[in-house]
């Protein structure tokens, strides 16, 4: 990706909307599944759509409807749902340096999901300050509406749709790992980052394979941070020792 694209963007909201397209491959099939499961769990179509509109957080929505359907105490449902969403706490501060002084930004954070964060983290620094808000609005509106739209389709005709084209539902979600890979790829040039990211990816993958999908993201990120600081400390110590040897000669 170009490191400086600011001067070439005429309509940043359109660029944001266009760059949200790869997200749809992951959003729509999952949102359709949510619509189907919510209706099967006893929610009406409108209620499913309202959950997608207001909460707008994939895994926690599934947990919300599943726990309500299972008859869990509501305080426990809220607690568990918020616990799953706790990872969002680190997203805002990470993009804060590139946000303008506009009072709209805190409200726009409703659109900050795992995927829009990943895109924003890479793209915002490359845009001119005046273009960032419009770009983010374009990105988050398309992503949000696709999530809501997918829920509508799922609630109305999801079961029939997934039965008719099961392969499509399997193929489209690959857009998400492909997008994450493209966002990470430039960092693999540095050895420290290549090792750190490699360890993080493998830990997250293994945790997900063994069924800990929600815990995988924070645990793998913390392990990656330990690796990063561990390698950095070792490298600093090595440089210090080399300096001491040189001074002793």
């Amino acid at each position: 990706m170009s490191s400086q694209i600011a001067s070439t963007v005429d309509r940043p909201w359109l660029m944001g909307a266009r760059e949200a397209i790869p997200l749809l491959g992951g959003y729509i099939p999952v949102a359709i599944s949510f619509g189907v499961i919510a209706v099967q769990s006893g929610f009406t179509g409108w209620e499913a759509v309202l959950i997608s509109t207001l909460v707008y957080a994939g895994a926690s929505q599934f947990l919300f409807v599943a726990m309500v359907a299972a008859g869990a105490p509501l305080w426990f449902v809220v607690l568990m749902t918020l616990l799953i969403n706790a990872r969002h706490v680190v997203y805002g501060p990470n993009i804060a340096p590139w946000l303008t002084a506009s009072r709209w930004w805190p409200w726009l954070m409703h659109g900050l999901t795992d995927q829009t964060f990943a895109l924003s983290h890479v793209r915002l620094p490359q845009l001119a300050e005046s273009q960032r808000k419009a770009w983010f609005i374009g990105l988050s509106v398309v992503a949000w509406f696709s999530w809501i739209g997918g829920t509508v389709v799922g609630a109305v005709a999801g079961q029939e749709l997934t039965q008719r084209s099961p392969l499509l539902g399997e193929v489209m979600p690959f857009a998400l790992p492909a997008l994450f890979l493209v966002l990470l790829a430039p960092r693999f040039a540095a050895r420290l980052w290549a090792v750190t990211l490699g360890v993080t990816i493998v830990i997250a993958l293994l945790l997900a394979v063994f069924g800990f999908k929600n815990a995988a993201i924070p645990i793998a990120a913390v392990c990656g941070a330990l690796v990063y600081y561990g390698i950095s400390a070792l490298a600093t110590e090595k440089v210090q020792r080399a300096g001491e040897v040189r001074n002793g000669q």
Binding site: G26, R87, V90, Y91, P93, N94, D114, Q115, F117, A118, H121, E170, P173, L176, P177, F180, L181, L183, L184, R187, W193, T196, L197, T200, I201, V202, I203, A204, L205, L207, A208, V209, K213, A216, I217, P218, A220, A221, G224, A225, Y228, Y229
Partner: peptide
């Protein structure tokens, strides 16, 4: 730690998203 954690969260999401549904 915050500047380090950002890319690591994306890497973790990548790892999780690599696991197919079946």
């Amino acid at each position: 730690w915050l500047t380090v954690l950002g890319p690591l969260m994306i890497a973790a999401m990548f790892g999780v998203s690599l696991v197919p549904s079946s």
